[in-house]
Structure formats: C-alpha cells, structure tokens
Design a protein around this nucleic acid. Structure first.
Length: 122
DNA sequence: ACCGTGACGGTAT
DNA sequence: TATACCGCCACGG
C-alpha cells in the first residue's frame, strides 16, 4: 500500500493546484501559501509521492531562483522543460525568469501587463 | 534511537 | 557568481 498523504501534504497539494497555467511558483512560496512556511522540502517530497492520478501541475514548481530543481539532463528535467514550454513559459538553460512568469506578480507586470501580452513582439 | 540524505531556502563570505 | 553553512523534517538503513 502507498503511504497515506499527511494533512500538511494535502494542504500543499491544494496550493500547488492553485498555480495558474503559464505561471510558475517556488517550493517556498507553495509552502507559505499552504500555511507551512519553511517547509519547502516537504513540497518536493510531496510532489514525488503524490499519485500521478491527481495530475498535479508539478512542472510549475521551481526553485526560489527560478531554476528547475530536478537534475539537469535527467529525464524528469527534460520533461519539465517541455511541459513548461508547451504552456508558454520560457525556459533558458534550465531557468525561468520569475520576474516575468512568477506567480507573485512583479512590479513590472503590474505596469506592463501579463506575460502573454509581453511576449508579443520582442 | 542515531544518522545520512534530499524535487529547498536564506544568509554569510 | 560560487561555495559553505545551517535550519528544516520525513524517511530509510
């Protein structure tokens, strides 16, 4: 039998599901949003334990600096890059510009609008 | 019960 | 920018 998810993990899952398509959030942000500040590691653990049937947007969760947490070059890493790219998130050298795609909007976005309108033209 | 490990993160150097 | 530490804590040996 698979180990049951803890109450904390259920809350983290809810926070993960709340990340909008085309945007990304950090492990620490998810933890805080779930009311569990400082528990970023539990987020990573949860993503690995959560059953695939839940179809969580695991690929939208990145490290605090915007880098993909999985080992560069690994199958999971490549898969994450593909999923992100597929929904419009630009990944360069395994890193995403949080100022542009981060869930917590930066001042720039508030002034210039969401990513979709920003990436129009260069 | 002790200890190393890790899809992490913030601070110091 | 990179490395070192330390805080965090669930797990497996």
């Amino acid at each position: 039998m698979a180990k049951a998810l803890s109450e904390s993990q259920l809350r983290l899952i809810a926070a993960i599901r709340a990340v909008p398509r085309g945007r990304v959030a950090s492990y620490s942000q998810i933890a805080s949003n779930a009311g569990l500040p400082g528990r970023a590691r539990l987020v990573g653990r949860t993503l690995g334990e959560a059953p695939a049937s839940l179809k969580l947007p695991w690929y939208r969760i990145l490290r605090a600096d915007g880098r993909i947490a999985l080992t560069p070059g690994s199958a999971g890493f490549d898969k994450q890059v593909r999923w992100l790219t597929r929904e419009g998130v630009v990944v360069h050298n395994g890193k995403v510009a949080l100022a542009q795609f981060g869930w917590q909007r930066s001042l720039d976005e508030l002034l210039w609008g969401p990513p979709t309108s920003v990436k129009r033209k260069t």
